[in-house]
Amino acid sequence: MLGELPLDINLKHCKACGICYAICPRKALAGDKLGKVYMSDPDKCTKCGICEAHCPDYVIFVRRDKK
């Protein structure tokens, strides 16, 4: 059910720097064994966008509901 995740993650561009899951205030993100990002707990995500703003490789895009 990838389409329902709050984040769109382009893993092809991920360089495993670890900023996103260190900076996430709700710890909704985690690193896999290569250090690349994945959503460990999608329910915790509040779509604050801090990971999107601090990803140096533009991997993450927050799917915000259109109002």
Partner: peptide
């Protein structure tokens, strides 16, 4: 042209 050549964790992308 993306991804860029900067190292992992480089702040230049931000």
């Amino acid at each position: 042209k993306l991804p860029h050549i900067w190292c992992p964790g480089c702040g230049h992308g931000i």
